[in-house]
């Protein structure tokens, strides 16, 4: 077992090795299959979560603005706060909970059943064969999920604004989009790439290390991948927002 205090050192080292494995050419067919699998399995979760989050933000914004007679401005808060922070963060969280846990448990199950050792005995590199395709899948899926999160969150806000709060359809769209610029979309996609990388590295690391054996080890690896992935997603979002919005936008 690797002590927790060493994690800040071990994780960057593993990230470097995994990135180097990507450059050594992982199997193309596996990579394409994993990319499509990760996107297809994460997207429904991202869409559902962000739709209801957009709806919830709209209700909350309306409750705060209604006493000032500014109910119609609810969309502004949802568009601004949602697209810049909330939807990318939730997309990263959904990716960590859906894909991160799955990757960690898959790799840990392969370690428990000694499939990883078998690969090593055959002279094959598990980093190139197992880790690199999964990392590429997460990096590709990240921006796709963030974009889907933004769209579904805005649609959630629009649906609730129009049908529940009774705001005119075109007025709701106009306020939702008034605070969103092209720069925000680009930042969102950059965040998606970074968050995908972070989730992928954490999940592959937790799945690859030799942890407690047996079925409990598999469950524990999935658990650690989700929680550590979510923590690093939040810290990365804060760092990127402070760096980009604090300096440039």
């Amino acid at each position: 077992m690797i002590p927790q205090v060493l994690l800040p050192l071990m994780l960057p080292a593993f990230a470097l090795r995994a990135t180097a494995a990507i450059l050594r050419g992982p199997p193309l067919k596996d990579t394409v299959l994993l990319v499509s699998r990760v996107i297809l399995r994460s997207l429904p979760v991202v869409v559902i979560i962000c739709f209801f989050c957009g709806a919830m933000l709209t209700v909350q914004a309306a409750a705060s603005l209604a006493p000032f007679g500014a109910l119609r401005m609810s969309g502004l808060i949802v568009g601004f706060g949602g697209v810049r922070e909330v939807f990318p963060l939730l997309a990263g969280g959904a990716l960590a909970s859906r894909t991160g846990a799955e990757i960690a448990s898959q790799l840990q199950a392969m370690r428990v059943t000694r499939q990883v050792e078998a690969l090593e005995m055959m002279g094959l590199d598990p980093l190139v064969l197992l880790v690199a395709p999964r990392l590429i899948a997460c990096v590709v899926a990240g921006p796709v999920c963030v974009f889907a999160a933004m769209v579904s969150g805005l649609v959630g806000g629009q649906v609730i604004g129009q049908f529940q709060l009774g705001i005119d359809r075109s007025a709701m769209w106009a306020t939702l989009l008034s605070a969103v610029g092209v720069g925000d979309l680009v930042v969102g996609l950059i965040k998606g790439v970074v968050l995908g990388f972070v989730v992928g590295v954490v999940a592959c690391y937790e799945g690859s290390i030799v942890a407690e054996g047996g079925a409990r080890g598999v469950g524990a690896a999935a658990n650690r991948a989700v929680v550590r992935g979510m923590v690093l997603v939040c810290l990365s979002c804060l760092g990127l927002s402070a760096l980009i919005y604090g300096r440039f936008l």
């Binding site: 909970s97 859906r98 448990s105 428990v112 598999v218 690896a221």
Partner: peptide
């Protein structure tokens, strides 16, 4: 099964977050 444990943890987290 061993993979069933990971699948249970994964499915539980996703469903709970939703």
């Amino acid at each position: 099964t061993t993979t069933g444990v990971g699948r249970a943890a994964n499915g539980a987290v996703v469903t709970s977050v939703v």
